[in-house]
Design a protein around this nucleic acid. Structure first.
Length: 504
DNA sequence: TGAAATGTTGGGGCG
DNA sequence: ACGCCCCAACATTTC
């Protein structure tokens, strides 16, 4: 029995009866953002189909779907390489094709005589419509086409408020979704397909494949990604990371996750985004590691935000460009390209913001606490539209996903669902003193002020001239002065927000 | 998953 | 002993 809670067995039998092809024909597993072999329902379905399995990844660059950013393309190349090796080690191989998915799958089915195509569902704008069209086309061509739940624990249509609406506040969402998520992660079906198969039945000949390096997925700026090397894309790296996290950091997660200099977060987000590990596997590991303790609950609720963001984006596919709260449509954003560029490059003069932006550029990642401060700075101190910040993060974050990136930016801006109120304006100096008291995170990324010591490293502009001289810091030369004064910027942001409310 | 302004309280110095 | 002031510490309100 395939594991797919929503697809009843009856429905499936009808499909296999209606299929005009022999069950001995091979099946295609269409890999997308599920680049793993363990706990992969589409792969399980293909194995159940009982014939040769043809794994394929399609680079579909149709405009309806948002193209991955530069950092994400780097990850994708690494991850495809790892999946390819994992398949080869099991007597199989990954077929790479480029083009429109519907057309490519049709061609592949004709070339190989495949009778079925299996994949795991995604929920992003554009992808949903594309996949529906693919499924209809394959079925009308007489193939079996089935998709499965695995990217989320609770699919967006599984959950509605009592009045039939979508959840727009996290707490009631999670109250309703968490029990469903626990069942999905711990169900008998979920446990059954957890292990990666040791071999995959291969066809007599594999269809032609593109060469991965020909896709040129790695960014043109070769020096950019040199700092990404600490990451280990691929299923093995994901499992190792999960293991390390659940053994060491999970217990103290609730407090440690806010301190950017501590190894307190899971750093699983890129692995989850590319589906190198399933949320169900992560869930089970967290529950196993510490049966009690609020570290686990806090961590699971982060998986909950992932679910919540996908829930919202599925029901509101306009959110990548529209404010969830439409009163923000009238917000008086500044057009300030030079300011935006200083923020991107980590030259704002606020050490915590600069450290975060430089960490992002160097490593393809930014600690979550710092993401909030850096995003708040762009939106509220500089009054720059959140969409500009979202675009930069989209291009530079290894874990950028349409749902999480967009909705987290809207959350910070105050324009989102259950968002932080606009007037929650982070003080970047106070945040640094609170969460990086000795300044070690800051000086790791902003070394030019490292000799200021913890007393002044959070606000060099407030240091006495003697301290600056002793530390070799010349403001405006070796490190920028603050590009805006905090108090003035705060008042300006509050005034802008007030203008919103007084408008008719 | 804030910060700043404003309000309240209570201890201690002092006339 | 008492009231007064100061101010830190904490609580509440406002943005």
């Amino acid at each position: 029995m395939w594991r797919a809670p929503l697809d009843g067995a009856t429905k499936k039998r009808e499909h296999s009866l209606s299929a005009s092809v022999s069950p001995k024909s091979p099946s295609i597993v269409w890999f997308r953002r599920d680049l793993r072999l363990a706990d992969n329902p589409a792969l399980q379905a293909a194995l159940h189909w009982g014939a040769a399995v043809i794994p394929v990844f399609i680079l579909d660059e149709a405009r309806e779907m948002r193209a991955p950013g530069g950092a994400a393309r780097w990850w994708l190349e690494q991850s495809l390489s790892a999946l390819s090796a994992d398949l080869a080690a099991r007597g199989s191989r990954l077929v790479l094709r480029r083009g429109e998915a519907r057309q490519v799958l049709g061609e592949l089915a004709r070339e190989t005589g495949a009778g079925a195509v299996f994949w795991n569902r995604l929920y992003d704008p554009g992808v949903v419509e594309r996949d529906k069209a693919v499924k209809a086309a394959l079925r009308s061509a007489g193939l079996m086409a089935e998709s499965f739940k695995s990217y989320l624990l609770v699919e967006p249509w599984e959950l509605r408020t009592k009045t039939g609406g979508i959840y727009s506040v996290f707490t009631p969402f999670w109250r309703a979704a968490r029990p469903l998520a626990a069942v999905a992660a711990g169900s008998v079906e979920a446990q059954a397909g957890v292990r990666a198969p040791s071999t995959l039945p291969a066809p007599a000949t594999f269809p032609r494949s593109d060469i991965l390096s020909d896709w040129r997925l790695h960014p043109k700026i070769a020096t950019w990604t040199s700092g990404f090397q600490d990451w280990r894309p691929g299923e093995a790296g994901a499992l190792k990371r999960l293991d390390a996290f659940s053994q060491t950091a999970l217990g103290a997660y609730k407090d440690d996750r806010d301190h950017p200099n501590r190894p307190g977060t899971s750093r699983l987000s890129p692995h989850l985004h590319w589906g190198e590990i399933s949320p169900a596997t992560v869930w089970r590991a967290a529950e196993r590691a510490h049966a009690a303790g609020d570290g686990v609950d806090t961590f699971l609720s982060e998986l909950g935000w992932r679910e919540f963001n996908h829930h919202l984006l599925f029901h509101r596919p306009d959110l990548p460009t529209s404010n969830f709260r439409s009163q923000f449509d009238a917000f008086p954003w500044r057009s300030a390209p030079d300011d935006l560029e200083r923020w991107r490059r980590g030259m704002t003069g606020y050490p915590l913001v600069d450290a975060g932006m430089r960490e992002l550029w160097s490593t393809g990642f930014m600690h979550n606490r710092v993401r909030m401060v850096a995003a708040s700075f762009l939106i509220k101190h500089l009054l720059i539209d959140w969409r500009h910040g979202e675009a930069w993060f989209w291009d530079t974050l290894l874990d950028a996903s349409p749902a999480s990136n967009v909705l987290n930016w809207q959350w910070v801006a105050g324009s989102g669902a259950d968002a932080a109120p606009f007037f929650r304006i982070f003080n970047p100096v106070a945040q640094g003193e609170r969460f990086d008291p000795d300044g070690r995170y800051i000086t790791r990324w902003v070394p030019e002020i490292s000799r200021l010591g913890s007393a002044f490293v959070h606000a060099p502009q407030a240091a006495p001239a003697a301290a600056l001289a002793a530390a070799g810091v010349r403001l405006g030369e070796t490190y920028p002065r603050p590009m805006v004064d905090h108090d003035a910027a705060r008042q300006r942001a509050l005034a802008a927000f007030r203008s919103l409310r007084s408008d008719p």
